[in-house]
């Protein structure tokens, strides 16, 4: 669930000469809140930007396993070990989904991974910080995941537009749409309240690939 706005400097390159009509049609679709699919025509720079962002997100998920994975063998209880193991596996799954999504835009997984291993492609700066204590695992779940969710929710809410789902009109997102309402999670896990802070306000968390039935 990690993403980051890195805002790296765009590489200097000659402007693409593209079909002005197609470009105008594309922008009109965007302006109309239409959904762009990988096989649709799109400006080369749009494809490149999305490939960069999605692959950067994928690299972040994969590298993000390292600081948390550091504590799997030393988790204080078996229950927490199981929870951490599941969380780290989750990140791996997110990374693999994201590589698959980036591949639909025309760059192979090998190229994407090589770009990361050679240092050419970036991942989120946050995973370059150490986890010297078990408490850092809590801090990652609270702060790092919280920041990542904050980065992703706007994208998610906009991608699930009313046009595609009448239940989303007015941007009121019910749990059934594939989002988990934190208030429900809190209720389900009341038994483990002693492990965490609880949450003062309902917060929509998690993305559609991370849904469990209640």
């Amino acid at each position: 669930m990690y993403t980051q706005a890195l805002n790296a400097a765009p590489e200097a390159e000659a402007p693409f000469i593209e079909d002005a009509g197609r470009a105008a049609h594309f922008q009109a679709r965007i302006d109309a809140d239409d959904r762009i699919e990988p096989n649709d025509w799109m400006p080369a720079a749009y494809r490149k930007t999305l490939t960069r962002q999605i692959s950067q997100h994928a690299h972040s998920e994969i590298v993000g396993m390292l600081p948390e994975g550091n504590w799997i063998t030393r988790a204080p209880t078996l229950r927490r070990k199981a929870a951490l193991l599941a969380k780290v596996q989750d990140e791996c799954g997110h990374g693999l989904y994201l590589y698959a999504a980036a591949e639909t835009l025309g760059t192979s997984r090998e190229e994407l991974i090589d770009a990361m291993l050679s240092g050419k492609a970036k991942y989120s700066s946050i995973f370059n910080y150490p986890t010297p204590t078990w408490t850092d695992i809590g801090a990652i779940g609270w702060l790092v995941d919280g920041a990542a969710i904050m980065n992703q929710i706007p994208l998610l809410l906009w991608s699930l537009r009313a046009r595609h789902d009448p239940r989303l009109q007015g941007r009121v997102v019910p749990p059934a749409s594939g989002l988990r309402d934190h208030a429900h999670t809190v209720a389900r896990h009341r038994g483990s309240e002693g492990d965490g802070a609880g949450c003062a306000e309902p917060l929509v968390v998690a993305v559609s690939d991370d849904v469990r039935s209640a």
Binding site: Q4, A5, Y129, T135, L143
Partner: peptide
Amino acid sequence: MAQDALNRWWWPCLMMFGPP
């Protein structure tokens, strides 16, 4: 311990949102 972890992660987390 929790305070130490918060001290370590707070500023790096604010950086996650990218440059101003």
